[in-house]
Amino acid sequence: MKNTQTDIQGLPIAAVERDTGLLKDTLRVWERRYGFPQPLRDVNGERLYPANQVDRLRQIKRLIDQGMRPGKIFAADESTLAEWLAGSGVSEAAPGHFRELIELLHQQRSEDLRQMLQQNLLKLGLQRFVTDLLVPLNVEVGLAWMRGDISVSDEHLYTEQVQNTLRSAIHALHSPGGSPRILLTTFPDELHSLGLLMAEAMLAPEGAHCTSLGTQTPLADLAKAAKAGNYDIVALSFSQNYAARQAWAGLAELRRQLPAHITLWAGGRHLCERAPAIDGLRTLAEISDVLVALEEWQATQA
């Protein structure tokens, strides 16, 4: 008997994209290239992903976020994957305040979470709050989500509270006449904005004047804004699931549209591997690299 849509259990591709952070195009490419995932089909021929495949996709996404390449992951056997995942997990040796923060997320205690983030900000200062707390905490939260300790809504709560904390701290440091003038954004199809805020939080205490356009700015509009605002630097953030080849093509095109005096920064660890030569482009593997790049820019101006 032919399956009907009610007979088939699974998530549509749009829900899997939201749940895992993997783009629809990425899922389709993996299906063709690696034979996984293997979605079912509803009566209309649309893909439906069983729960066990979605769980595996979460695990694959976490390994990729830690720097592994998809080809290596898909070529590994089950025991090797289990070893990698065990090695990447958050152990009980994780700092106590990390575990406490994650428990606050799990309990949806947003006000307590806000206060704890604020206390750490006051204790560490803005730049160390980013490098010493947020960078490792982002990994911990992602791993907790992969294990199923927190839900998608919990992770969204975390992102929202961190963004609110950073925005308030950055606003308190705002210097309209600062230098250099830096324009921050992401390319179309790049939805992750936390990297932009973290970069701005590193730069604001150094006196830089930062303006964020948020996410998904078309290239032509970005080039126009950079020229109209007389910016010195255009900084873009790329998450791990943004294809490096697509990023390089966009950066090369943006470079052609920008005046030579405007420097390009591209943040994303995976972009630093086999980076092509593009004049006036500085790649940033770690969030702390923005300060090194800033010093380099200041040296050229001097």
Rank of each mutant, 00 (worst) to 15 (best):
R167M: 12
G125R: 07
Q246F: 05
Q163V: 11
K123E: 12
P12R: 04
A285W: 02
P180H: 10
A93W: 13
A144H: 03
A51W: 12
H171S: 15
H209W: 07
L143E: 08
L134T: 04
L197Y: 15
P205F: 10
R282Y: 10
T26L: 07
F98I: 04
G89H: 11
D7Q: 02
T263L: 14
Q240I: 09
S151L: 00
G214F: 04
I287R: 06
R69E: 14
P95S: 08
M202E: 02
L134R: 01
L124V: 13
E17P: 04
V290S: 05
I170N: 06
Q5L: 10
R245M: 12
Y231I: 03
A201R: 00
N3C: 05
L23D: 08
G96F: 01
A208L: 03
T6Y: 14
G177E: 13
D112Y: 01
T186R: 08
S239A: 15
E296H: 14
R274S: 10
H156W: 01
A252F: 13
H97R: 08
L251F: 12
T131K: 05
T283F: 02
G195C: 04
Y49E: 01
M202S: 00
M198S: 08
A199C: 13
L166H: 11
S237Y: 04
A243T: 09
R109Y: 05
L113S: 11
P205H: 13
R18Q: 15
G280Y: 08
D19Q: 12
A302D: 13
A75P: 04
M116Y: 00
E160V: 06
F238T: 02
E92M: 15
E295F: 05
V162C: 10
V43Y: 04
I73S: 04
V139A: 08
L203Q: 07
Q163F: 07
L183Q: 04
A243M: 14
H97W: 08
A199M: 14
T283Y: 00
I13N: 06
E92V: 15
S151E: 00
L57R: 01
I182W: 02
D42A: 03
R167N: 08
D132T: 05
A15N: 10
